[in-house]
Design a protein around this nucleic acid. Structure first.
Length: 919
RNA sequence: GCCCGGAUGGUGGAAUGGUAGACACGAAGGACUUAAAAUCCUUUGGCUUCACGGCUGUGCGGGUUCAAGUCCCGCUUCGGGUACCA
């Protein structure tokens, strides 16, 4: 009987489905294990072979854990809201839901063919009302809470209101946008609207004025990458920096906890590092500067308080509120011109074009330590959003300040002994201080500490920790996203009652902004509450739906809660999360934030959502080329092309095999090549060139998993994807080589069947066979635990090669091997497991355990080396004493020959490993 | 600029500081076959030798060690991330 993968795979996929093999329920008698893939956005292009890489890896681990007796949760779903579907809708008028549904069906079909063990009963789609109900619900909770900095957790906003009513802002520790100060009396005398406006300053989900790229012609906010040289990429309309009222999430309040949490989870170093940088904690001081001749002062943030004696100018961000205050009448015109010029530039342009620009404000600050007068400048190299939007410039020790000082001819005072600042600044935090009054003679580290102490003591400012992490802008002027559960009364936002959720997306006629420039939802009829209050017109961004989806999988059908306490208590959090690095600073920050918020509310029992995280590498494309001789329709093979003047042309990798072009298929591939002629090599073949680049349609290097499954089967695809190389490494997809793993499966099959008959017997295994099996068990177990799946596949190959050489057809050896292989190649494993006489699925077998007894070697081949170079090997008993090994090695004939009468200086014997004779 | 990864045969890659190149692809040769496919066997880093063998070899230059692809220092180079963050 032949290995008929088509029949086998269809048979078992149907069996799994009909018998609900992958349905998962809470089982208090078993330990749980939660394995999650980053769910895909169902794009119109379908899956290519790069997508399943991580899914296969997680599938192997899920099946492995199940075989080890764990109750495994392994769900899948779709991140279904998103821009491509909406753009398609704008072009075609087709509702995004229709396109999305179609794409999901296609994804599902492709996924099913690969034989994953997903529990599809738990499937979720972020665009479904019964799912996004809970996204909206979470938003309401965020609106109704503020972040208490003292407790480092979210608290109900009512408790803050109580404080305001009794003592005002006195002593409050609430994360906020602006530091406000008022008394209880002032609070109590404010109107409802005023009070609501103030509360927005504290809510975790808040509405605030933010600077955005606004395109009046298109009527929408644009992302930085949608703007170029001041005009929109689409249409070329002017774009301006504009302050708009947008929803935001106060992610920054959680900065410290997001940072601390990284130490409690097992993520890769690089990912942890990326998040740390993104959160960007910096310790420093906020230092107060008085203004000359004015009863006014402002603060700057610095991490280098030690450089206070080197401050030769101050710089304000153009957007800073201080600009107005500090611009003198004489400088007013020049400053206004500068502000105008900078306003026109987008953030992107500012970054791209690093020319030094700036203008003098006319005012002077007083150095709080030295008392000197310092000119205050305005420049766009200072960001309004970080620190206080103003800096003290120390050109000798900061490269940006240095460039500015050189450009405007401002003084540069070096503060470190022996440093040369004639050509560039000295930014390193090392050396001995000079020109610095009471700090002279100290090392930089000591000086930083002393300066900080001085500042607190003399009350010149305060110690401060700043974070780079920004709040997340949460409004999008789009249709295909979650509607906000928000209505407006007297222009103030209010939350809908939870009983009104989900607030479903309304139908609209066109997916474009309205004539008035409102977002698409402005077109909806009846888009208001029963009391006629208008509903919010923006929708939520892409990351909203993916921020808590892992919780929903625990209890996907619950209409009373996002997740029941019982389900959450059992499944807790994700034990293993596999996905791409592209989410390092987006989704993986937002969902950690979202989870921590829900944790604060007591709604989930774990502070961190993803215990262990692995990033699978990207699968790159491997493109093939043919070489056309210039001005002809003749193609010359790779190794002959240098004899001609040629143009390389991408050719579809699917009509190339082992870099040999299928000439007939090529002729049919494009009518242009119908009559093409070919110059072949000696082997009468056309060899193609190749290069590794991004997998994309335009390079004709996209490989569809369906084609691979059709030709070789799902088990071969699964094994081959793993065999390509280490999981976390980026690597090109190259279908060359897939024959190797397919041959392996056929060879495995041949241990069971020969000429139509089943040849497995019940004979007792030999010690050698047992050694082969148990060696493999040990290796596979180790590899799975370490996600080293490429070496597992090779271990399987070695095992089968050895059993083949031993002509082993014994059930006692083959059955454990089949179970071992089941996580990797589940279809063939099921088939062979059944053939061995089992009547239940191999999914519920018991994973074999290595018995070290079988691995014991009686003899060891010692490499005998001289000065580290191996000269020959010597087979000795494994339990031979070190001294005896040394003696035997030295007495050996070949040793004597190599010693040539010399006396060794030293002899190293590593028992069981090696002998090294040092001459 | 900063941070994080890599660099090993024609190719993908393997190697707890202990025989570099496992496993696989490709290639070459052979067996079977009318033929092809499939399958099986042999060889396959480079140089050198009739052969036994020898020399050399993990991006480059140093170092530690009895022993380095692996550890340390200094580079080169290719990916990826991130950035006027004071």
């Amino acid at each position: 009987m032949e290995y008929n993968f088509r029949e086998i795979e269809q048979k078992w996929q149907a069996y799994w489905k009909n018998n609900h093999i992958y349905k998962t329920e809470i089982d208090l008698d078993k330990p749980k294990y939660y394995v999650l893939d980053m769910f895909p956005y169902p794009s119109g292009a379908g899956l290519h072979v790069g997508h399943p890489l991580g899914y296969i890896a997680s599938d192997i681990f899920s099946r492995y854990k199940r075989l080890q007796g764990f109750n495994v949760l392994h769900p899948m779903g779709y991140d279904a809201f998103g821009l491509p579907a909406e753009q398609y809708a704008i072009q075609t008028g087709q509702h995004p839901a229709v396109t999305t549904k179609k794409n999901i069906a296609r994804y599902r079909e492709q996924l099913d063919k690969i034989g994953f063990c997903y529990d599809w009963n738990r499937e979720i789609r972020t665009c479904e009302p019964d799912y996004y109900k809970w996204t909206q619900w979470a938003f309401i909770q965020m609106f109704n809470h503020y972040f208490n900095k003292q407790l480092q957790k979210a608290q109900p906003i009512e408790s803050l209101v109580k404080v305001f009513e009794t003592v005002g802002t006195e002593g409050i520790q609430a994360a906020c946008s602006d530091e406000l100060q008022f008394t209880a009396q002032e609070w109590n005398s404010k109107t409802e609207k005023e009070q609501q406006e103030i509360l927005l300053n504290y809510r975790i989900a808040y509405l605030a004025d933010l600077k955005v790229n606004w395109c009046p012609e298109l009527g929408t906010v644009l992302a930085n990458d949608e703007v170029s040289e001041g005009v929109s990429v689409r249409g070329g309309y002017p774009v301006e920096q504009r302050v708009m009222r947008q929803w935001s999430l106060r992610v920054s309040a959680y900065a410290q906890r997001l940072l601390d949490g990284l130490n409690t989870i097992e993520w890769t170093d690089s990912l942890t590092e990326t998040q740390k940088n993104w959160i960007g904690r910096s310790e420093g001081a906020e230092l107060r500067f008085d203004i000359k001749d004015q009863d006014f002062n402002f603060e700057v943030f610095t991490t280098r308080a030690d450089t206070i004696y080197g401050v030769t100018f101050m710089v304000l961000a153009p957007e800073s509120e201080l600009v107005k205050q500090l611009t003198t009448p004489e400088q007013a015109e020049e400053v206004a011109d500068y502000l105008d010029a900078t306003k026109k530039r987008t953030e992107r342009e500012r970054l791209a074009d690093r020319r030094v620009t700036g203008v003098f404000s006319g005012s002077y600050a007083i150095n709080p330590v030295s008392g000197t007068e310092i000119p205050i400048w305005i420049s766009d190299y200072v960001l309004s959003g970080y620190g206080t939007g103003a800096i003290m410039a120390v050109p000798a020790h900061d490269s940006r300040d240095y460039a500015f000082a050189k450009h405007f001819n401002l003084p540069i005072i070096p503060l470190i002994e022996g440093c040369d600042v004639s050509l560039e600044s000295f930014d390193a935090k090392e050396g001995i201080m000079m020109n610095s009054g009471f700090l002279n003679g100290l090392s930089v580290k000591q000086a930083i500490a002393k300066a900080k102490a001085y500042i607190s003591e003399k009350n010149l400012g305060r110690l401060k920790v700043n974070f780079r992490l920004r709040d997340a802008i949460f409004s999008r002027q789009r249709y295909w996203g979650e509607p906000f559960p928000v209505y407006y009364k007297d222009n103030m936002p209010y939350m809908l009652d939870e009983s009104r959720l989900p607030l479903e997306l309304p139908k609209i006629d066109k997916y474009l902004p309205t004539e008035k420039g409102e977002p698409p939802l402005g077109r909806a009829k009846e888009w208001h509450t029963e009391d006629n209050f208008p509903l919010e017109l923006c929708t939520m961004p892409g990351f909203a739906g993916s921020s808590a989806y892992y919780l929903r999988y625990m209890d996907p059908k619950n209409d009373k809660a996002l997740v029941s306490p019982e389900a959450n208590q059992y499944w807790r959090n994700v034990d293993l999360y596999i996905g791409g690095t592209e989410h390092a600073t987006g989704h993986l920050i937002y969902s950690r934030f979202w989870n921590k918020f829900l944790f604060d509310l007591g709604l989930v029992c774990e502070d961190e959502p993803f215990k262990k995280l692995i990033n699978q590498g990207m699968i790159q494309g491997r493109s093939n080329f043919v070489y056309r001789i210039k001005n002809s329709n003749t193609f010359v093979s790779l190794n002959l092309k240098n004899q001609y003047e040629t143009t390389p042309i991408h050719v579809d990798v699917n009509i190339v095999s082992n870099d040999m072009l299928d000439i007939e298929q090529f002729k049919n591939w494009n009518p242009e090549y119908k009559n093409a002629e070919f110059i072949l090599e000696n082997d009468v073949k056309y060899h193609c060139g190749w290069v590794v680049e991004k997998m994309s349609k335009s390079m004709y290097n996209v490989v569809n998993p369906d084609d691979i499954v059709g030709k070789y089967g799902a088990d071969t695809l699964r094994l081959y994807e793993m065999f390509l190389g280490p999981l976390e490494q980026s690597k090109p997809w190259d279908t060359n080589g897939i024959d190797g793993v397919h041959r392996f499966l056929k060879k495995l099959w041949s241990l069971f069947y020969k000429n139509e008959s089943f040849i497995v017997n019940n004979e007792e295994p030999s010690p050698e066979e047992l050694k082969v099996l148990h060696k493999t068990i040990k290796k596979i177990t180790f590899d799975i635990e370490n996600f080293s799946y490429n070496t597992s596949v090779s271990a399987f190959m070695i095992c089968v090669n050895e059993l083949f050489a031993l002509k082993c057809n014994k059930k006692s050896i083959l059955e454990p091997l089949v179970i071992l292989l089941a996580p990797f190649a589940p279809h063939i494993a099921e088939e062979l497991y059944q053939a061995l006489g089992n009547t239940v699925t191999v999914c519920d077998a018991v994973f074999p355990v290595c018995n070290e007894e079988y691995l014991k070697e009686s003899k060891v081949k010692y490499p005998i080396s001289f000065n580290g170079k191996v000269r020959f090997t010597l087979e000795l008993p494994a339990d031979m004493r070190k001294e005896d090994v040394e003696e035997t090695a030295l007495a050996n004939e070949q040793t004597l020959k190599l010693l040539d009468g010399k006396v060794p200086k030293k002899i190293i014997v590593v028992p069981g490993k090696i002998v090294n004779i040092v001459l």
